[in-house]
């Protein structure tokens, strides 16, 4: 979230760091649409983000918007579970 650029650029950066290759336009499009949906979901229901961010060992950063952080968490979770991420071919 602290990377420069718009959400598409941030997603591209994240993809590259998780999968170690550049995302295709198709892949970025899927992720981008999903991220937008979740940004809306977590902005609408303010009770969700605190629950999600309470999970895990490291405390949630205080300088980031927590609703947005939750939406990004739920999106990067997808990248971490890609077949390509969990399998070395």
């Amino acid at each position: 979230m602290r990377q420069s650029g718009d959400n598409a650029a941030k997603l591209a950066w994240t993809f590259r760091h998780v999968v170690r290759r550049d995302a295709t336009a198709e892949e970025l499009s899927v992720l981008h649409k999903g991220l937008e949906k979740r940004l809306a979901t977590y902005a609408t229901d303010k009770t969700l983000a605190p629950k999600l961010l309470a999970t895990g060992l490291s405390p949630a950063p205080t300088d980031l918007d927590h609703d947005q952080l939750a939406a990004w968490t739920a999106t990067t979770n997808i990248l971490l579970n890609l077949d390509e991420t969990v399998t070395r071919e």
Binding site: K51, L52, L53, A54, A70
Partner: peptide, 8 residues
């Protein structure tokens, strides 16, 4: 997990 509704 907490904070991940079924739709998400």
């Amino acid at each position: 997990p907490d904070g991940i509704p079924r739709e998400v």
